[in-house]
Design a protein around this nucleic acid. Structure first.
Lengths: 230, 230
DNA sequence: CAGTGGTCTAGACCACGAT
DNA sequence: TCGTGGTCTAGACCACTGG
């Protein structure tokens, strides 16, 4: 068997046999254990990372992945509630709030005639202290006056409804597997180029007008999507 | 800027500027161009691969990814129709058909009392000659007598309906990002450990009985999920 | 056959983390 | 300060693809 696959197997068994384990031996330790080189050891680690079995935090080491958060994008369930039902301690942090012009993609999504002013919210969500998702939310500044003064840690849809009387009636989501952009990777404390599930959500009101445009980047090993249909 | 990021940038621009390009220069060519080493060149290539911009075929080289197939798992649309609407030439090949005992996972999903006999179909689906998905379909042999004689390149749900009078009324899907198992990677002609979107679909009849259990592995750069809800 | 990517060795220096 | 992962060099041999 190939050496890096042997190392992968060894680590895989190590993790299975020690459910209490949180962190793997260092790359150099593994290198000595297998009388190999860091390149080969890293090949095995990166493989396990792709599988979702382990993850790394920048220069801190390699850690065992906790169970994935199961999430149904169709059902309207609160992030907090969902996390708690699955025995996680959730946390949302607002990283930034700006009222500014936005990218072409956002302008096109809102079908505005000329570049409009948007609120841009950036938030990070964590499970048990581990950042797992970073998102950007865009909505029309003209439509949501004084949004900055609201408490933006919870559901923005609820704020839209309760404070502005604007109801989301349907939404369109798009999911792709890709690499996290570098600025988002920093916020999640993961390595540059880490894998993610990128979800773009467009929420509409009953007049079919876009209410908000939302880009979520999920750490790939942290989430499992579950959908019931028909 | 880091060298591998420079190489990534160079290739990214190369691809953007040459829409007709199908294949990248070889790793050794890039190594000489940048007076660097294969390790560093590969770092850049693997990054672009994670982003979904390029893909490799085993020992053949690195290729530019075509557009992703957009697919709504909720709508019941034929794979052929969907592909053709998006200007792809679709193809389905049956790799194997077995009538046999199945894994514990499958037995549990069907909630059978004792290990049952299943039909196990393995198929590969391609777009424009590029294999993009491999799937395993399990259904109870007792329920679908003589299934082997049907033409299994199309929709199995249609066969269940038309030939056996069994209708699928609802389904449950689960999506995770992970690495393709080695035996499936061979069928897709991708490198061992390649990224995939793994979709498990469980289709039920109106009595809430499981009709079939389906595991799909999609090449991650080949698919984009689109869902409308509510 | 030559050319490709797949695997592997044996080092090096750096930035950042924990202490 | 020391240990960690992040980046990088300069090679090597192998399995497989293509002409």
């Amino acid at each position: 068997m190939l050496l890096y696959k042997e190392i992968r197997q060894y680590l895989f068994a190590l993790i299975a046999d020690h459910p209490e384990l949180k962190k793997l031996p260092s790359e150099r330790e593994l290198q000595y254990t297998f009388r190999s080189t860091r390149i080969t050891v890293r090949e095995a680690l990166i493989r396990l990372e792709a599988e979702g079995v382990i993850y790394r935090q920048n220069r801190k080491g390699w850690f065992i992945s906790p169970p994935r958060l199961k999430w149904d994008p169709v059902k309207k369930v609160n992030f907090y509630q969902l996390a708690q039902e699955q025995q996680f301690t959730p946390l949302t942090q607002v990283v930034s709030f700006e009222t500014t012009l936005a990218s072409n993609v956002v302008n096109q999504a809102f079908a505005v005639q000329s570049p409009a002013t948007f609120h841009a919210i950036c938030r990070v969500r964590s499970l048990d202290e581990r950042p797992v998702m970073v998102e950007e939310i865009y909505c029309l500044a003209a439509q949501f006056d004084d949004l900055a003064s609201k408490s933006l840690e919870g559901s923005v849809t609820t704020i839209f409804e309760r404070d502005y009387g604007i109801n989301v009636t349907h939404e369109r989501s798009s999911l792709v597997v890709t690499a996290i952009p570098d600025d988002k990777a920093d916020l999640l404390n993961v390595n540059s180029g880490a894998l993610c599930l990128k979800i773009i959500r467009q929420r509409f009101n009953q007049a079919d007008k876009l209410v908000d445009y939302n880009i979520e980047y999920w750490v790939h090993s942290a989430i499992e999507i579950e959908v019931d249909s028909q």
